[in-house]
Computed example of a mutant assay.
Amino acid sequence: MPERITPLSPDRAAALAGAYDGAAAATRRRAWLGLAVLVVLTALAARAAEVRPWLLAANLGKFTAYIAQILPPLTLGHLRGDLAEWYWGWPKWLALLGETLLMAYLGTLLGAVGGFLLCFSAAANVTQGRTVRFLVRRGLEFGRTVPEIVFALIFVIAFGLGPMVGVLAIAIHSTGALGKLFSEVVENIDMKPVESLTAAGAGRIEILRFAVLPQVLSNFVSYGLLRFEINVRGAGVMGFVGAGGIGQELLVAIRNFYYADVSAILVLVMLTVMAIDLGTERLRHRLLGGLR
């Protein structure tokens, strides 16, 4: 027999409707207040940073003119010859681009290992020692706060020119960034397996291996691949401070006003980054599907 629903009395219904309208009005006031604060802060930040949209609009033509200036003339009748002349230095550029990719790969690998080793000590749910957690978190903050190019400048002074400088700079910055991301993933795991192994008398290594790692491994892989994409872009400008790679050749072309070489190197770098983005995206999806 279906249960009969007793309707509310008019007074009770009016009271509930009034409470709902009051709560909705309070929510709208908070939303408008938050929007007003956001607008004010944006205006203050734009003023402090001297953002002038009218100046940008007035000089936008200079930017497009520069883009048109660095692009070489390409004609359909002589397209092959024009491309050969445009990419006259492709063997050297490809070698330097390969050096950039290896720099990004090795720096990401070292950074991922460092972030993996430190992330568990930075996670509050699997590390009880506050002092250790505080020190590790501050170390990770230092690693990701200082830009890679600043680390590269310091290492150039210490170790001289070369790709090793770029690898070390990328590795330190990646350790700080990935350690932070990894620790946040660890802090969001289901603690029931951890509590079960702890009650069974398992040690820290066993708990991390059998209770924590299976839950976070897929996200670790995803973040590591994403960081590699970012580091490829970062390694591209390491040559500006003498850390090797394609960035050094790009800086030479810019300083000497070799406009065609600037556009050729930029297009080469963009195509490489696009290919890496597509490749790592597919690899990340396959790994995530296989690990879950």
Score class of each variant (00 low, 15 high):
68 A>R: 09
187 E>G: 14
116 F>R: 01
262 V>R: 00
49 A>K: 11
165 V>L: 07
244 G>I: 03
83 L>K: 04
68 A>F: 07
10 P>M: 13
230 I>W: 14
85 E>G: 05
181 L>Q: 04
222 S>N: 15
200 A>C: 10
235 A>G: 03
83 L>E: 04
85 E>C: 00
278 L>F: 11
228 F>Y: 15
10 P>S: 14
113 V>M: 11
2 P>R: 15
120 F>T: 10
184 E>G: 07
285 H>L: 13
51 V>M: 06
139 G>V: 02
102 L>T: 04
272 T>A: 13
5 I>E: 15
190 D>Y: 05
240 F>L: 12
44 L>Y: 09
51 V>A: 11
216 V>R: 01
290 G>C: 05
216 V>L: 09
16 L>G: 00
157 I>L: 13
122 A>T: 00
11 D>A: 15
143 G>T: 00
229 E>I: 06
252 V>T: 10
137 R>P: 03
133 R>A: 04
271 L>T: 05
39 V>G: 09
129 G>D: 12
204 R>P: 03
54 W>G: 14
71 L>Q: 09
177 A>D: 04
99 E>H: 12
246 I>A: 03
245 G>K: 03
218 S>T: 07
192 K>T: 14
11 D>C: 01
82 D>W: 14
134 F>S: 12
152 A>I: 02
18 G>V: 02
229 E>W: 07
230 I>E: 06
227 R>V: 00
120 F>K: 12
190 D>W: 07
226 L>I: 05
219 N>V: 00
263 S>Y: 12
250 L>K: 00
28 R>W: 14
105 Y>T: 10
212 V>R: 02
258 Y>R: 15
208 L>K: 11
49 A>D: 08
79 L>Y: 13
229 E>D: 15
254 I>L: 15
250 L>G: 01
190 D>Q: 11
81 G>I: 11
145 T>H: 12
28 R>E: 09
110 L>H: 07
67 I>T: 10
237 V>W: 01
184 E>L: 06
210 F>Q: 09
134 F>V: 10
144 R>W: 13
85 E>S: 09
282 R>Y: 13
154 I>G: 01
4 R>N: 02
140 L>N: 02
246 I>V: 07
